[in-house]
Amino acid sequence: MAIAVKTQNLPPIKLIRNVPKEEYYVPGHRTCAGCGPALQYKLVAKAAGPNTIFIGPTGCMYVANASYLCTPYTVPWMHAQITNGGAIASGIEAAYKVLLRKGKRTGELPNIIVMAGDGGTVDIGLQAMSAMMYRAHDVLFICYDNEAYTNTGIQTSPTTPYGANTTFTPPGSAIPEGKTLFPKDAPQLVIGGHPAVKYVATASVAYPVDLINKVRKGLNQQGPAFLHIHCPCPKGWKFDEAKTIEIARLAIETGMWNMYEWEDGVYRYQFRPKKYKPVREYMKLQGRFAHLTEAHIAKQQAFVDAKLKVHGIPVEVPAPAPRTQQ
């Protein structure tokens, strides 16, 4: 019985100077200096504009933003549990459909955006996110990925990279690399099993125009869309807070992060380097990897190389083979 009520077509922008001046995520919040997630929030809000409702599952973008009854959102925003961002968004969307149909609200279906951390997306929030995608709700689900449970004091999450030192994966003599597992692939999880989803993309705070355009594309979709946004976290990853953008860019240049869109089954890649830099260059700037040996770094390099092959991206950097010595 659901009827299409969204006709909006948010136009793409070409240059950084075309970014809307209006702010819908305003200053005064309590995120750390150099916070990647806060930066992407600002850009996402600009891209979406005033006819928007944000759903904020528990995480840094809840706790450090919506503190002491003050919130930085000038559009409607609702807290969700870390568990249920997708479900609350589903309910809001369903309510708007029926209220618009019955004439109890007027205008367009608002942009409904879940702004979830990695924990709130692919770990404890996975079920609600997946069900929302499956049920075809017209919602943009954004995973701002800071690669850890940061709000609770930097614990490993399924997107934390191999070898990271987190407070739940401290390196020690028995477990020298810290985190031993390789991360879950959030966008591939969505692409792989949700026939209603037509648009999935990855983005990065390093490329704001691209990020804004991907948000708009996702919002223009009828139905669910998913954005996975790479958001360096100076506190959790232990780097100089002036280097957020540099780190984000290095992730792409080393293949630690891949920029792509998946639209109706077709992949398009962005910002693909001619020649990938070794992952070491990305890792050496971050304290969370400071304890790793060459062998550990080689293991990470091999993982990245294999992943780039899966994406059909030619690997042009000679990857050092993992050493056998442990």
Binding site: I55, A87, S90, A95
Partner: peptide, 16 residues
């Protein structure tokens, strides 16, 4: 059921 309650929470908070 966790989702059931969450969906209706979102819906009722939106005004339905």
């Amino acid at each position: 059921e966790h989702a059931q309650l969450s969906v209706v929470l979102g819906a009722a908070a939106a005004g339905a």
